[in-house]
Amino acid sequence: MSAYISIADVTKSFAGTAGRIDALQNVNLDVPAGEFLCLVGPSGCGKSTLVFIIAGLVKASGGEVRVGGKPVVEPDPDRTMVFQGDAVFPWMTVAQNIGYGLRYSGVSKTEQDQTVKQLIDLVGLTGFAEAFPKELSGGMKKRVDLARAYATNPTVLLMDEPFGALDAITKEKMQVDLMRLSVTDTGQRRTIVFVTHDLEEAIFLADRVAVMTPRPGAIQVVLDVPFPRPREASIRLSTEFQALRGQIRELLVTEEEES
């Protein structure tokens, strides 16, 4: 199992207004190609920061991130991202937002339009192609964001609490969609790093769950999720599922108390 994303000794400190903040300290993590990895950890432990570093949006203070063997120096459309906040461009229509990455991908205009149309239907926004984001609900905007990240058909997807603000039912639906879309056009599984604070979501989606320590964040342990795919929503109710959830919860709580 070779690492597709390899994070070696990554450290990050910020010069904040209230002095230096050590966000990440010696993060080591390998994600094999095609793996769905969930990242959980207490608020402020540096999950977003780590994802930004993998994306190439933020430079690490120390250590190195490699993706596909190459060191990450800048963002790449083969490694797209869904942000924790609302990153849908308000001045572009739904179709323009979704097609944004395709403009720079070198595919023909007709092909772009076709992909956009397919994605709009796929994420359930049929009829909203020409709508501006202000006319959409929070969940609908998140779906635009997802579709935009899928459009360039990336091998790596970085998702920072994408469903954090959604209600339980919408969330479940979007999780199912995500499982479906976690395969590239050519049938390969995408490598996905998915940040969440919802432990059930993490276990339901992930092949492995990485648990972080409080700030300065580091990887505390990485747990295997043994459930076979495709997974039914009902596995959440199984005792094994709940036992794993309890185990992760325990890890987060004890670390919180120690610090």
Binding site: A55, P77, D86
Partner: peptide, 15 residues
């Protein structure tokens, strides 16, 4: 966040 999103999607500085 908008600038970061555009960068991850392959936009150049001019774009």
């Amino acid at each position: 966040i908008y600038i970061m999103a555009a960068r991850t999607l392959g936009a150049s500085r001019l774009e």
